[in-house]
Simulated scan of single mutants.
Amino acid sequence: MRNLILSAVFATAGLIGGLAQAAEPEAGKQYVELSNPVPVSKPGKIEVVELFWYGCPHCYQFEPTITPWAKKLPDDVNFVRVPAMFGGVWNVHGQLFIALEAMGVEAKVHDAVFAAIHKEGKKLADEDEMADFLADQGVDKEAFLKTFNSFGVKSQMEKDKKLAMAYQITGVPTMVVNGKYRFDLGTAGGPEQTLKLADFLIEKERAAR
């Protein structure tokens, strides 16, 4: 009887150990390791990129999870949002985001833009509609229109398009850690698991220094 109990204990311990070992994320399963790493924007820091689109419902649903997480990241981690631009309204919304960043007001109106599209049914698909909406949020209308159509914003759009191509993304939301590891809600297993995976890869990069 004692031997049976011990066998059961060892079997259970072995099963738990096996599950714990299997739980560690693996390249090719929960994430993809890019064959050509992409340079980070701030050398010396571990970069976490979220590629998103204002019109994406999954990105909107991910916001309440990723935003508080990003605010608590340590000083050696640089969190960056990059708009994915696959043409059409994707590009217009990407231009909107970049213009808001250039004006230094993106953090102030980011949630409002998402809510306008997904809760209020606004398209925000042309610059006049955007300018009118942003004016209600306290953003100077003329300053926005000038920035939206500026050379600097259009140049940044081209850079972000090339960045998304280098990351080889096919949809959003997608995350990339340190220009090396790409994953999304589907491969990671959900919003919370996505951020746990990000934490794992951040620590992996930190340990490799």
Rank of each mutant, 00 (worst) to 15 (best):
M1L: 08
I5S: 00
A8Y: 00
A8L: 12
F10I: 14
A11L: 08
G17I: 08
G18D: 03
A22T: 03
A23H: 14
A23P: 04
P25T: 08
K29S: 13
V32K: 13
P37I: 14
V38F: 02
V38W: 05
V38I: 04
V40G: 14
V40M: 07
P43K: 04
C56T: 01
C56I: 03
P68F: 10
D75I: 00
D75T: 00
N78R: 13
N78K: 09
N78C: 10
F79P: 13
V82P: 06
A84P: 07
V89T: 13
N91R: 10
V92H: 11
L96F: 13
L96M: 15
M103C: 04
G104N: 00
V109P: 01
I117W: 04
K122M: 15
A125D: 15
A125V: 05
L134Y: 06
D136R: 14
G138C: 03
A143I: 04
F144M: 09
K146Y: 01
N149P: 02
K154H: 07
Q156D: 12
L163T: 08
Y167A: 02
Q168F: 02
V172M: 03
N178R: 08
G179H: 04
Y181F: 15
A188S: 06
G189C: 00
E192A: 15
A198D: 07
F200D: 07
E203N: 15
K204C: 07
K204P: 07
A207T: 06
R209I: 10
